[in-house]
Computed example of a mutant assay.
Amino acid sequence: MRSESSAGWEGVSLLGPAEVRSLAGELGVRPTKKLGQNFVHDANTVRRIAATAALDADDVVLEVGPGLGSLTLALLGRCRTVHAVEIDPVLAGRLPTTVAEHAPGLVDRLVTHTADAMRIAAADLDPAPTALVANLPYNVAVPVVLHLLAELPTLRHGLVMVQAEVADRMAAGPGGKVYGVPSVKIAWYATARRVATVSRTVFWPVPNVDSALVAFTRHDPPSATVDRRRVFAVVDAAFAQRRKTLRAALTSWAGSGDAATRVLTAAGVDPGARGERLDVSAFVRIAEAAEHTG
């Protein structure tokens, strides 16, 4: 019997702790660290995530790692379509049935894909997704977000739940201790901000860390002339040895210390600065200068 606390809206019945454990037992699913599986069993939390995602009725949502369907059910009543990408074939196979049981009027809004999110391309998703909303596996959160932003230009905004420390890195600005490669690369595509902390107690099994919600809004790339991969190569080199000056950190990338100094000077960047002080536009200028500096 479902508790009143699991009641949703528009005929949607959300999953509570009992439903999550029962469904996992039925499927013989034991959450694994390898897949980064931690299932949300708190209906209020999925309501909060769905509301915070600020979806329009015409949005097409991409959900990565729907698991048992807790968040999926909360999303279906707020958008036109949900593309649920699940790597586990058992979970992917059960999801349409779960939706039929808990949101019978919304089954036609669900499109399930048994796939690895790191291999998803625009051609795989019709209609094209406009929003990413997901409880992402801790171990692949940043690579997945970066891959999807690169491959799916139709993604205009999103809200992802990730490990709290990862959320800080994703949304960090220049100058902070946690500012690094994820911060700069995400800033190429979008403006990101940490919007809320999520207690570990809403998950089964309970993880050893807290989670946080990161919202992003896509913007135009900071350069239309330099290739993103060239900029990202500079970023990777600058943070590979983040305590070193840029002159030293970029020596191998530029070919020599003198070459690095020439490029940095041409870009208007102090060779004695560290990468953690630069915003994405400064890395763009370095990549552009490298193309024109001998």
Results as ranks from 00 to 15, higher is better:
Asp126Tyr: 06
Gly275Phe: 01
Gly176Pro: 09
Leu213Trp: 05
Pro205Ile: 02
Gly176Ala: 14
Asp58Ile: 02
Glu10Trp: 08
Thr130Leu: 12
Pro143Met: 05
Val284Asp: 12
Arg169Phe: 02
Leu55Met: 11
Val145Arg: 10
Val178Arg: 15
Glu26Asp: 13
Phe216Ile: 11
Leu278His: 02
Leu23Val: 13
Pro174Phe: 14
Thr251His: 07
Pro174Lys: 07
Ala240Met: 03
Gly69Ser: 07
Ala53Trp: 06
Gly77Ile: 02
Gly275Ser: 04
Val231Ile: 13
Ala128Asp: 14
Pro89Gln: 11
Glu291Trp: 03
Ala192Arg: 04
Ala254Thr: 05
Arg78Asn: 09
Asp88Gln: 12
Asp88Ala: 10
Tyr189Trp: 15
Val235Arg: 08
Asp88Glu: 12
Gly16Asp: 15
Arg21Asp: 12
Val160Tyr: 09
Arg30Ile: 15
Leu132Val: 12
Glu63His: 03
Val140Lys: 06
Pro174Ser: 06
Pro137Glu: 03
Ala282Gly: 09
Val140Asp: 10
Asp88Gly: 13
Leu278Ile: 08
Ala57Gly: 15
Gly65Tyr: 02
Leu55Lys: 06
Glu165Phe: 00
Val226His: 00
Thr225Leu: 05
Asp58Asn: 14
Leu132Glu: 14
Arg48Asn: 14
Thr52Arg: 15
Arg285Ser: 10
Arg228Ala: 15
Pro129Arg: 00
Thr293Ser: 08
Ala131Tyr: 09
Ile87Phe: 05
Arg247Val: 08
Ala192His: 04
Pro137Gly: 05
Gln163Lys: 01
Arg230Cys: 10
Arg2Asn: 15
Gly8Gln: 01
Arg30Leu: 15
Val145Thr: 13
Thr130Gln: 14
Gly8Thr: 08
Leu23Tyr: 11
Ala282Asn: 09
Glu101Met: 08
Leu132Pro: 12
Val99Trp: 06
Val107Glu: 14
Phe203Tyr: 12
Leu159Tyr: 12
Tyr179Met: 08
Arg109Trp: 06
Glu19Pro: 02
Val85Thr: 08
Asp258Lys: 06
Thr52Phe: 13
Ala190Asn: 11
Gln163Pro: 14
Met118Gly: 10
Leu95Arg: 07
Asn38Phe: 01
Glu288Trp: 00
Val181Glu: 01
Lys33Gly: 05
Asp210Glu: 15
Asp126Arg: 11
Thr114Ile: 03
Phe283Val: 12
Ile87Cys: 01
Val198Phe: 04
Gly105Tyr: 08
Leu75His: 05
Val107Ala: 12
Ala237His: 03
Pro221Lys: 11
Pro127Phe: 10
Val280His: 09
